[in-house]
């Protein structure tokens, strides 16, 4: 449908730092919102020409396709170590690792903690949707107690597989990290909060302040078997009870 915009001014458009590639995410998945926010941040800071994206393994494996910047696809869980290698090779580059909960908080546990503990001057975006999306909805380290997944068909039983891991709180115990925060995207207020947090996390790197981690509570309507709207409500009402929103560390 064509709309008349002749006497109007454009107030919202696709960030310049994003490519024209169509998203490969499922309908309603928050990864796309986050992609836009990162693109907007790169635009605002004017850093596209020196930014390197580290793409993980998982639903966001194609992250190297979304941004008009250099990118490296990393082995599962190793994005923070790869980011370390890039940043140490050229400290002038702005390096961000984009990782899901399985990548960051399970198979990449060691790499994630130690990059934070070294205070690497990098930005890590940690997308927590409590499920392995790409492989078909298996239990994630962050899956909620009693959450049904394809590998916990009767619901996550803490007696068998433990509790959801609050990884950001764990990392917040370290002395080195500069900024650790947990944000969400289930309504416009939280989207604006996340925009602010991501900008801070990139600015910290630009200003050589050290390690920043933004955990973002995200939805997976497909594997949660909920509508996108119901998924948002689930994050607001249930997930934030287990993973409270807000800053955990801010040492800028």
């Amino acid at each position: 449908m064509q709309v008349e915009t002749a006497d109007m001014v454009k107030v919202f458009s696709r960030p310049q730092s994003l490519t024209a590639a169509k998203s490969t995410y499922c309908p309603g998945c928050h990864h796309g919102i986050l992609t836009r926010i990162i693109g907007k941040t790169i635009d605002e800071l004017g850093i596209a020409e020196r930014t390197v994206c580290i793409a993980p393994v998982g639903c966001s494996v194609f992250a190297y396709n979304w941004y008009r910047c250099d990118a490296i696809q990393a082995a599962h869980g190793r994005a923070s170590a790869v980011a370390t290698g890039v940043k140490r090779a050229d400290p002038n580059l702005i390096v961000f690792a984009y990782q899901g909960d399985g990548d960051f908080a399970s198979i990449g546990t060691a790499e994630s903690i130690h990059a934070a503990n070294r205070g690497e001057n990098i930005t890590v975006i940690f997308v927590n949707n409590q499920v392995y999306g790409m492989t078909g909805g298996e239990m994630a380290p962050t899956s909620l107690v009693h959450q049904k997944t394809t590998t916990t068909p009767a619901g996550r039983d803490p007696a068998q597989v433990g509790y959801p891991i609050r990884f950001s709180e764990m990392i917040a115990q370290l002395d080195a990290p500069t900024y650790i925060t947990r944000q969400a995207l289930f309504d416009t207020r939280r989207i604006l909060d996340t925009e602010e947090a991501i900008k801070k996390a990139f600015e910290n790197q630009v200003n050589e302040k050290g390690y920043s981690l933004v955990e973002v509570l995200s939805t997976c309507p497909t594997n949660w078997r909920m509508s996108p709207i119901a998924s948002n409500k689930h994050v607001a009402d249930v997930v934030t009870e287990v993973f409270p929103l807000g800053d955990l560390v801010d040492r800028r």
Binding site: A75, R78, A81, T84, G85, R88, A89, D90, A110
Partner: peptide, 24 residues
């Protein structure tokens, strides 16, 4: 130049992967 004692062999080779990608 850069010397990092990595947390693991896997991390060390992953850092090499990053540095090699960055062209050094």
């Amino acid at each position: 130049r850069t010397f990092v004692q990595a947390e693991s062999e896997i991390a060390a080779v992953s850092m090499v992967y990053g540095a090699a990608a960055a062209g050094v």
